[in-house]
Amino acid sequence: MLANYGYSDGSGTYYITLDTDKCNGCGDCVTACPQQMFLVEPDDYDDDKVVIKEAMRKDVKYLCAPCKPTAGPRELPCEATCAPGAIVHSW
């Protein structure tokens, strides 16, 4: 499943897409994210899968801003740490 968390507003579209078919529940992103936005918990089918914490879904643009240089190459801690490649940012 592709779970899209975030929003679009007047300034743009901000979604973090988590691919639960790729996610193995390792929890590496939980420790890698400086804002502690990730959580691994049992999903509807009782498999441990990653989610973005509910209270943070409204603020991904601001919470992730420190990780995102406005120019030059960027490597996001979350995307870089996830071996199966389950995390993708839309912006």
């Binding site: 968390y5 929003y7 507003d9």
Partner: peptide
């Protein structure tokens, strides 16, 4: 009926 993808707007 199993979810493949979902998206919600959490802001507005």
């Amino acid at each position: 009926g199993k979810v493949q993808q979902f998206l919600m707007n959490d802001k507005c």
